[in-house]
Design a protein around this nucleic acid. Structure first.
Lengths: 214, 214, 214, 214
DNA sequence: CATGAATGAGATTTCATTCAT
DNA sequence: TATGAATGAAATCTCATTCAT
């Protein structure tokens, strides 16, 4: 499967192993759910014995946590930076942000973890916490602040910044959810680009300050 | 225990039993997830023996299906009727629709089933199918049609009706999801009303036809 | 396996089952030790499935506890009664007590539980506690009190009552231990009677008050 | 690699290693029992890798055997010598022997092996055999012979020498067992000295030849 | 209609042991 | 000599499901 000679049993490459195991786990957890996936399946997919999985992760639950951690690391920071210091009309920044998320969601591998979290979080408070603390706690306030600043500067209509965040990102997320969970999507496929542009049209006008009528 | 005649001890009301079982199942599935709930727990909560559950439902999976069926039964029809024949600006109808959903979501009992479905659907194509066929397949086209008609009549901006549906309902659904899954909500609680009104403000302007300037 | 017709699978007699399981467990734990005995072995010996064992006992450890409890119930009371109110020379009572224990120890079934406890107690504080609290805490003070009263009344030499208890019962217990653990015993078998009588000879003289020589 | 020169960090003294492993094993087996102790724990405590343990001992069971062997090595000879050729009243020799054992038992490190053996012997005939053959087979006959000679010489009462051995050593052993297993001991601690002296008082009188009354 | 008793088939986790380096 | 990596074989415990009553 790799290269050179075929070493049947022992392969001894510890450094890569944990990641391989997490890859296998992600694929299976996403496809079947955490509870329905057995450690044996993860091991088999990673090309290891069950016991070897426990060499790297102390429990099945730890596997899930490590998985989420790995996926979540670095996700938030990128986007937040751009918003932090922004002054002026927030709409271009919001547009950029949505397009960025859309690009990420287009890759099923990236969409898999949030989907997994959405399903497992209710039963695993720790899983929910990881995502809440490492992603949402950073991104949501940044968005809220961005909008608040826009309102203050008169660049956008006087809306509730915190609630408006939902109006900004909700449509994109629901679009992906509908497609992934119920296979409900436009005839020409996921059409994320079109979805984003259509939504931005509405958002742009929806947030525009009232025309100071004469 | 319920009706008129006093048969307090020897209650043998066969007709209500299945519903009681489903009530128990819903509560438990919602709280712990389908896979983590045992038939024994459902039976205990319904005040029956495990075997009795199998008297009414042939399997644990059937329990879930029946549950979803029951919840979904009449949900769609109500809303669809109002949209079906509407002519003119769709925005008031959309507003009414959102307020209706919001009212329903405010009751945790009503929000439970969609949340459950969201989590179980990926692993149970049949569950996804029930919801898709009995709810989404009715509501989504109705909304799409309503918007298309609004565009055609010049009441709203020329948007893609199918994609705009996401912009209409997404914010509300994401709001509830954030609150339920990650406990992320405004300081003053779920604030569904405020969310809807804030969103409608944006939506109203966002969908408004371009001012024919000059 | 039992009587009448051969009912291959279901036997339905719940009342006797727990005791049958405990019997099986005692036999196996005694022969192989607790850690080396599997629940599967216990189940097989009791003529049940593994799962059925868990129907009656929530864990393997609980099996051990129930076992000890059952064996220990009522053991202490009998002997203690005779000592409680005794006045006068304690030696006949001690002799009776030792003969009673010896008779009990002659039956391997009775000796098994103390032997088991001796081995498992160090790792299972709860097991040690059961025996300590339900047997030793009753018998040892009774013996101590009996001897103290004998000393006070001048019937026996002024010995330390608490320590003398060891001199009374130690030889018998060590004899059984040597035989069971190392198969070290007289040529003619366990010879419990001879052991007790020989020990009583020594004890009788050993405890006798000093001849108040003239 | 080993010799003279000071290599404080890079210590590679192969010769001591097996003993260090046995030390670790003894501590752990005593504290947790053989079955509950893992080879990994032993290795960790000895500051080695698991595999290194297998370099010195072919199996976990061999570890236990070596342990017992080492502990047992010189134990017996000392005491036996004194008894072998004794002529005259055996009681002073018995007293010396008991005091010697008591002194040894006062050190938990010395008491650990017999306690361990007591627990593991029933499941490991080889372990029982080591102790039986290398300790008991020497000490018990020596004690028996000593007593027999005392009886023959009229120094002590005509008792059964083999059984009387139990009366001599049993109390001491039971005292230690009660303390170790059930934490049952005098208020002022293990009090081994007092126990021995109290027991010797009884034993002295108990073995004394009948007063040739007139 | 209802249930107590029972189980087969697994799931997670552990651990003594081995081997390439 | 020493070890990190790996595993086969088991052990405990769970659970959906069945059947005699």
């Amino acid at each position: 499967m790799t290269e050179l000679s075929a070493l049947p049993k022992f392969r001894r490459r510890a450094a890569e192993r944990p990641d391989e195991v997490l890859d296998a786990a992600l694929a299976l957890f996403s496809a079947q759910g955490f509870a329905r996936t057995t450690v044996a399946q993860v091991a088999a997919r990673a090309g290891l014995s069950k016991a070897a999985v426990y060499l790297y992760f102390p429990s099945k639950q730890a596997l899930l946590q490590a998985l989420v951690h790995r996926a979540v690391a670095s996700v938030a920071g990128q986007a937040v930076g751009q918003m932090q210091g922004h002054r002026g009309d927030p709409r271009p920044v919001l547009a950029g942000f949505l397009r960025q998320i859309a690009a990420r969601m287009a890759d099923p591998a990236h969409a898999a973890v949030p989907a997994l979290i959405l399903r497992e979080a209710p039963h695993s408070p720790d899983i929910a916490a990881i995502y809440r603390d490492e992603v949402l706690a950073l991104v949501m306030p940044a968005l809220t602040g961005l909008i608040a600043q826009g309102v203050a500067g008169g660049h956008i209509r006087p809306v509730d910044p915190e609630l408006t965040v939902r109006s900004v990102v909700g449509p994109l997320l629901i679009h992906v959810l509908l497609a992934r969970v119920f296979a409900i999507q436009p005839a020409d496929g996921l059409a994320l680009d079109r979805l984003v542009e259509n939504h931005l049209t509405i958002l742009d006008a929806g947030l525009a300050p009232e025309k100071a009528a004469s």
